[in-house]
Design a protein around this nucleic acid. Structure first.
Length: 717
DNA sequence: GAGCACTGC
């Protein structure tokens, strides 16, 4: 049935290698069939007799669609022999032998079963995407193949030629290459970087339209603004063409904040069963060319069917975290070679195609990084560090955790400091009982800490709502028409609650409470300009959090709990106090004379309340003296997004704790509970690994190098 | 008076 897939010819070779080795890296290009076939091969060879085969995917849709395809190929009912597990949805049963799951779900499972004993094989699919979760799994799995000795097989699949590095990481395990099924793509470079990649894209697109035979055009832009601009320019140009001089054209924007009904219809592909094809709108009319103007969402997450031409600006908008300031920034940066090739590959899925790169081959060769900087080196690590601490693995020290690409020492110290401020670890770096419970909640540490505190002071139900709302926040406001051709007149304000002046957390709470009072009516969301999908997600998250908190909850979890009590609490004092404890790592103090704030606990930054905030000023026009914020983000200026007013008496204990902060003590702790043993364990660990694998481990030296770099930087200041 | 790329438990 799947005999046309390239990987099938390699079955014997792959299976022999898996038999002889605990870990195998498989490089399979797009269309090789690795995602659907590897699990079935292993099943045929009896690997499901001693356990389940787990296949991880970075995305939910992929886990579901690949599982569906495999069940179909094996002729079984989905959820029986072949199943999947994603957040909110577990379609597996006692019969399940092949299980597709997101890597986040596998990490959760590992929390309650660190040895992952139910699995005989773990396949980490699409590892080249290097999601934060995949990187943590790579480290955990490396440890598991040692502790579970010969009882576990691990396959790492990747689409790029980065296999050598992964192989080195796994003690030089074998690397197998499986060809893909892409058609050739001709690469056309520009002589030089254009002044404006929008104008240059426009010219290139029109050239293609006039000169090239039929086939859709996919254009990679960096963000919604650029997309809107280019779409409207393209529309103008296409309309000004003489009628009948060339085929018709449809121009379609494609980015994450488009409402899903406009965005795409997702249909399984017959050519590439392991991916998703997206048809933007219904089938394109005959003799008509589509121009899809997209963000990097079209690089991996969505596949547009029918693309023959790709125009690549060479840029991407990327979010990165600065551990010394605690601030995120969204920057437009050059893509990596891997990304450039991924984009080009989008032109060769149905027949030979062309990729127009709006940069020269010298720029590609000399300026582009080989691979994208992995997420783990661009994110705040508080959540990941807490997770690793909570596993309480006897031989794991956070600062020495074996990452494929270790994050900076500075970034790990930042994470430890934050965790200490919110009581998740003590002053020696050991996880606390509060921290242990926090780790079990699928939330970022500030929010899980807020829930714990709210449970103590009687406002758990409110905090659950706030945490759930913030988990969805960006997808909440429906696709605003931005500043497109529509008249720029402000639409009638959707009259949402205003947070009673206390800020955005309270507003989010009030919005959900109103929705609850309106019986979760979908029409109500639409009236208020809220994305229905986002609000439903909030409801799901809230339900999940409630279930997890049930065991330890001291009060009611219902949204409409204690109406009378709430009436007396117009100032939301308990909730704000709980937020202050949870966000002790995200505190800011107002400047004396103006409404700017200074961040506390980081290298001090001058930041502003985001203009979209509902936080109110007092009669003198001044903001509160202290606020906590959900995140710092530098866009046009440094902003605090989602702020909440807090009171001086709640802030004082945090300031005291900051004074006591001793980062060396925090990071010196071993991270596990038997401190006395930590010294010897840490130093003896490499030897132990040598004995097991017979291969020296370079971990110590890499960590030492990172530490040296860090200290050198520190010394300069 | 600003606007945020993309995932996920």
């Amino acid at each position: 049935m799947a005999s046309h897939l390239p990987i099938v010819q390699f079955e014997d070779k792959i299976m022999k290698t898996v038999e002889d080795n605990a870990v195998v890296v498989i490089i399979g290009e797009t269309g090789s069939g690795k995602s659907t076939q590897l699990s079935q091969m292993l099943h045929r060879r009896g690997y499901t007799k001693s356990g389940i085969i787990a296949v991880t995917q970075p995305r939910r849709v992929a886990a579901v669609s690949v599982a569906r395809r495999v069940a179909q190929e094996l002729g079984v009912t989905l959820g029986e022999e072949v199943g999947y597990a994603i957040r909110f949805e577990d379609r597996t049963s006692d019969l399940t032998r092949i299980k597709y799951l997101t890597d986040g779900v596998l990490l959760r499972e590992s929390l309650s079963n660190p040895e992952l004993n139910q699995y005989s094989v773990i396949i980490l699919d699409e590892a080249h995407e290097r999601s934060l979760n995949t990187d943590i799994l790579l480290g955990l799995v490396k440890r598991l193949v040692k502790t579970r000795a010969s009882k576990l097989k691990v396959l790492i699949t990747s689409a790029t030629l980065d296999g050598e590095k992964v192989s080195e990481f796994f003690s030089d395990c074998p690397v197998l290459n499986v060809p893909g099924k892409l058609y050739p793509v001709e690469i056309l470079y520009s002589e030089e970087r254009p002044k404006s990649y929008i104008e240059s894209s426009l010219r290139t697109a029109m050239d293609i339209h006039v000169r090239e035979p039929e086939g859709d055009v996919l254009i990679f832009m960096t963000g919604q603004d650029d997309i809107d601009k280019l779409v409207s320019k393209l529309e103008d140009r296409v309309q000004s063409l003489e009628e009948g001089s060339c085929m018709d054209a449809i121009i379609l924007p494609l980015h994450g904040s488009l409402p899903p009904e406009l965005q795409a219809e997702i249909i399984p592909s017959h050519v590439f069963p392991m991916t998703l094809q997206v048809r933007v709108f219904s089938p394109p009319p005959p003799n008509c060319r589509r121009f899809i103007v997209a963000t990097n969402i079209a690089e991996t997450s969505l596949t547009v069917d029918g693309v023959v031409y790709v125009i690549d600006s060479g840029y991407v908008k990327q979010r990165q975290y600065n551990p010394s300031t605690g601030m995120y920034s969204l920057d437009i940066i050059q893509i990596s070679k891997v990304q450039a090739n991924q984009r080009a590959g989008r032109a060769g899925r149905t027949r030979p195609g062309k990729c127009y790169r709006l940069y020269s081959s010298e720029v590609y060769q000399e300026e582009f990084l080989d691979v994208t900087v992995p997420e783990i080196q661009r994110s705040s690590l508080a959540g990941s560090v807490l997770y690793l601490k909570s596993l309480d693995l006897p031989d794991i020290d956070i600062l020495k955790f074996d990452f494929l690409d270790p994050p900076s020492f500075e970034s790990l110290e930042d994470a430890l400091k934050q965790l200490y401020l919110i009581d998740a670890i003590d002053d020696t770096g050991l996880i606390t009982s509060v921290g242990q419970t926090m780790a079990e909640l699928p939330l970022e540490p500030s929010l899980s800490r807020t829930l714990m505190e709210a449970n103590e002071n009687g406002c758990l139900s409110q905090a659950l709502t706030v945490a759930a709302m913030l988990s969805a926040e960006t997808t909440l406001l429906a696709g605003q028409s931005s500043k497109s051709n529509e008249k720029k007149r402000k639409q009638p304000p959707p009259d949402l609650p205003d947070g009673s002046g206390w800020g955005d957390h309270v507003q989010l709470l009030q919005i959900f409470e109103q929705w609850d009072q309106n019986e979760f009516d979908i029409g109500w969301c639409k009236d208020k300009g809220l994305q229905v999908r986002g609000m439903k997600f909030v409801k799901d998250v809230r339900r999940q959090l409630s279930q997890l908190m049930q065991k330890i909850a001291k009060g009611s979890l219902n949204v409409r709990t204690n109406e009378r009590y709430k009436e007396r609490q117009r100032d939301y004092k308990n909730l704000r106090k709980a937020l202050c404890v949870g966000y002790a790592n995200k505190l800011a103090e107002r400047m004396v004379q103006h409404n700017g704030y200074r961040t506390i606990g980081f290298k001090p930054q001058l930041v502003q309340v985001h203009p979209s905030s509902t936080l109110k000023t007092d009669e003198d026009g001044m903001f509160p003296n202290y606020v906590v914020y959900h995140e710092l983000i530098a866009t046009s200026r440094p902003y605090m997004r989602n702020v909440c007013a807090v009171e001086m008496p709640w802030v004082n204990p945090i300031l005291k704790k900051l004074e006591k902060l001793n980062i060396d003590k925090l990071s010196g702790g071993s991270g596990h509970s038997i401190r006395e043993e930590s010294e010897t364990k840490v130093s003896s660990l490499p030897k132990k690994e040598e004995a097991v694998t017979g291969v020296p481990d370079d971990r110590e030296s890499r960590i030492q190098a990172a530490r040296d770099r860090f200290l050198a930087r520190k010394g300069k200041k």
